[in-house]
């Protein structure tokens, strides 16, 4: 339960971090909040030659609004800072409501948004939120920056579209339309554990109550978070009643192809995907949420 030996560098600039990463390639790992990576080291599941600690790189943390009402969050921003941000609460209520589900306060005091996204745990909250919100993930390399859409970012368990030598530096959340409602739910045996299954949803509701764009993302039920597109399509354009929400939930359950493991069977996870989808749709469409 002690980490293996490694070389350690704490670069004081992004350029220095990129140069170190370029020089070492596969032998180097980036350290952000360390709340998943350090356990992996302690278990000796990871044995990097060099750890490049991003905690002393200036300019990677912070929350601000862009000119279009969207949200720019630096990759090294701690989950706790996002949780306590008034700006986030106002400009992305789904992100705001999901953060308290991540582990516990001492973990959120260290864990970062960029670290969680780059780690790409299939049961983690932030990848699902990024996907539901069409977030753009900004990857910086020696040759410059490129934007990666959340839908193209998560390739598999702990696998992302980041290339060797790239650092995830910023996450952009598009503006939140005033008619957008949201829901979030997950189930775990103890609060703060990784979700057995979770669901995040946004629903844009027109003045006459008709559903416009609907997003339903199921996580913990496959290699990556996934949109339940058939369920979304079934809701779009409708004035959903209880029966319609149940049908959408059934479509979401059918859509997932969950694993069986020591936490839960595939069948149990599929059932949860349906139940949680119905609950988050009810949350999103509840009259109280509508008034908010």
């Amino acid at each position: 339960m002690k980490p293996p030996a490694f070389d350690y560098a704490a670069p004081g600039s992004l350029d220095e971090a990129l140069a170190l990463l370029a020089a070492k390639r596969d032998g180097a790992k980036l350290l952000a909040g360390g709340q998943s990576f350090v356990p992996a080291l302690n278990f000796r599941l990871a044995r990097p030659e060099l750890i490049i600690d991003l905690n002393r790189v200036p300019g990677l943390a912070g929350i601000r609004r862009d000119g279009d009402g969207g949200l720019l969050i630096g990759a090294m921003t701690r989950a706790r800072a996002i949780e306590r941000s008034e700006v986030v609460a106002r400009s992305n209520p789904l992100l705001h409501s999901a953060i308290p589900w991540i582990a516990h306060v001492p973990i959120r005091n260290r864990g970062t948004i960029g670290g969680s996204l780059a780690h790409a745990d299939p049961a983690a909250e932030l990848p699902a939120i990024a996907l539901a919100c069409d977030a753009i993930l900004v990857a910086t390399g020696i040759l410059g920056k490129r934007d990666i859409a959340a839908r193209d970012f998560f390739l598999g368990v702990f696998t992302t579209a980041l290339r060797a030598g790239e650092i995830l530096t910023e996450i952009r959340f598009p503006a939140w339309p005033p008619n957008r409602r949201h829901g979030f739910a997950e189930f775990a045996r103890r609060h703060g554990d990784f979700a057995i299954v979770g669901v995040a949803a946004t629903i844009d509701v027109a003045a006459d109550g008709a559903v416009g764009d609907a997003r339903i993302v199921v996580f913990g039920a496959g290699d990556t978070p996934r949109r339940a597109r058939e369920a979304e399509a079934a809701l779009a354009g409708s004035h959903p009643d209880t029966g319609a929400l149940q049908r959408a939930a059934a479509l979401a359950a059918n859509h997932v192809d969950p694993p069986s493991d020591h936490h839960a069977s595939a069948e149990y996870r599929r059932e949860l995907a349906g139940t949680l989808t119905r609950r988050v749709l009810e949350q999103a469409l509840a009259p109280r949420a509508r008034a908010a």
Binding site: G34, P106, R110
Partner: peptide
């Protein structure tokens, strides 16, 4: 001033 896990910080 913030509570953290000392087993997950070097």
């Amino acid at each position: 001033g913030n509570s953290v896990r000392s087993c997950l910080i070097f």
